[in-house]
Design a protein around this nucleic acid. Structure first.
Lengths: 194, 194, 194, 194
DNA sequence: TATGAATGAGTCTTCATTCAT
DNA sequence: GATGAATGAAGACTCATTCAT
């Protein structure tokens, strides 16, 4: 179905989701408000409650939107590789690209924050958990593929360990005065894989 | 100075901090509101702004209160050990007790959530970062002491790695349908230390 | 469009403006508060922020409302004159009616106060200045018409001088123990025009 | 009595008055708040209510302080003249200096605002009126002296007229987009005296 | 199918004033 | 004589949600 043939309602819904996802990425959960979403989408305020039965609904959609986008970006990143990554360093950078996003290369807490806000925000927003689990599993598949391509044999447990290492490094780096979470994660991966 | 001789003003201030810290632990940052704090402390609404120049101020105090309490509990946990921990398993449990709190033994996301909400909440509340760094450093000292006592030689880098491993495991476990973050962390520590 | 057919929303908006304008006239800028306006209009508090994006917005509307009303009253006063005003005294009274309002005939500071509060309040409320300039210009047109009708030739500069004379007389009369600003202005006009 | 021998209480009172007067000049009546005054004076909040039975009391004192200071400046301005002012222009500038303050030479509404805020603010603050009358009378004496010195014979009525002209010109100039009230007043005085 | 209108509850914060010490 | 402590009332403004059309 082309964009042109997408029903108007669906298109508006998507516009709201995209607006909410943008707000979520920029300002965290607090920033996702009916008013703000409607304004960003250029749609009437009431359309937010018309298309989404509650704010939580809208937040779910936003979380999924952001997550799917990241997954797609990860997939694309993987596909653009002509052949297998050579060497540990290439594997590490690939892991970081997929886990933290390519934007994390620039340093700073902001580009990576969304991933951890969603994770840590889930217990207080139980409706997010199933969604997060699903997307987490898909991300793991992608990460597993990195090792497959590189020829490195890595068990599922080992993969989870490496993910944890990255996530823990990042979470702890978030409070640094000049945070560079990607570098922190890289250091730890290098120590483990090197 | 005994409790009885604590000046009244300081006692009220502490009551507000304790109330805010409780709300923070139970409901996250969003739950710390002037009204809620005042009600929980049984004090007038205006007392919250009398003792704290802004809500951020109060939040800072609450974060510090919770953090100091955890540190004190960790210190106490360490001191109650008659001699050195015997065996890897004991070391692991000790690590988990100090990092996640003894309450984490019961399972569930709630007991460990506060640690990660504070970490992940810091980038959007920059005034927390220095405080968090200070308390993080103190916690690392405590954790280092575990290894010293056990006779295991562990470098600072290695310690940070282990912390990251725990934190990453926890953060990823938060989205499980029946989260048991402590167990997840334990598994990873066992794999690394075992 | 009759009152009955005025859309409800517009009617409510007008009710708020009228309430604000009344408060402004009776109590000055300080008296225009969300609460007071809503109560006077018999509408919910939140309606004030629904119809006006800020208090300044509401104050602007109130200032314009009062100003337009005065201008309309001046216009009406002029139109009720069958023919030209005869004699200097009639011209003077007409000038005073338009500048200070017919209510000023009764003496007292209150009836004239609003004009000067708006003028003097503008520098600290810059958003009022354009509005005030516009209404000032329209008032000058009305005043010019008085002289045209009376057959007296008065240049624009001379008109501004006479306005200044009245305003200055009034402003200084405001501190008298039993203020009669209209009389003070009349005396000065008589001396200049007599 | 020298400053050193001024009783401490009186000195503090004066500090509060000076602080209030400064706030009044900078921010108008609204800016005179207990907290702001105390902070500016570097004194405890409660000292404001200890030395002044109410905020109105403090405002009165501030109004008087500012007024006396202006009068003193006017007196000084007059005394610094070696001989009589020569020519109408010199007289006009002198009038403007005394009425609007020498700061008005720089243009802008701010330097002259205080005079008109006090005048127009008096009807809603009746306790100010007697004070304002007294200071107004003293100012008139000063202005009369200008004409005496210059050799120009000007009746009391004429003087009041000239004052009104200046005040009216200023008040109307306050709403200009780039207000230069002194110039507006100068023009009118020149037309009348030239 | 949409949406403009509407609002009760709540947000943080300010303030004049009182009072015990 | 002086002031730290305290607070009820009010300030402007936001928000999720409902509802009539």
């Amino acid at each position: 179905m082309t964009a042109a043939s997408t029903p108007k309602g669906e298109r508006r819904r998507q516009a709201l989701v995209a607006a909410a996802a943008g707000l979520l990425a920029e300002g965290g959960f607090e920033a996702v408000r009916h008013r703000a979403v409607a304004e960003r989408a250029g749609l009437p305020l009431a359309s937010t409650t018309y298309y989404f039965s509650s704010l939580d609904d809208l937040i779910s959609a936003a979380v999924e939107h952001d997550g799917r986008q990241e997954l797609a970006a990860g997939r694309a990143r993987l596909d653009e590789l002509a052949d297998q990554p050579r060497g540990t360093d290439a594997v590490i950078e690939l892991l970081l690209d997929l886990l933290l996003g390519v934007a994390s290369r620039d340093g700073g807490a902001e580009p990576v924050l969304l991933r951890y806000e969603r994770l840590v925000g889930s217990p207080r927003r139980p409706y997010l958990a199933p969604l997060m689990r699903q997307m987490s599993a898909e991300l793991q598949e992608l990460l597993a593929e990195i090792f497959e391509r590189s020829g490195m044999r890595v068990s599922r447990e080992r993969l989870l360990e490496l993910i944890a290492l990255v996530d823990g490094a990042v979470v702890n780096a978030l409070i640094e005065s000049d945070p560079d979470p990607r570098s922190a994660a890289r250091r730890m991966l290098a120590a483990q894989l090197g």
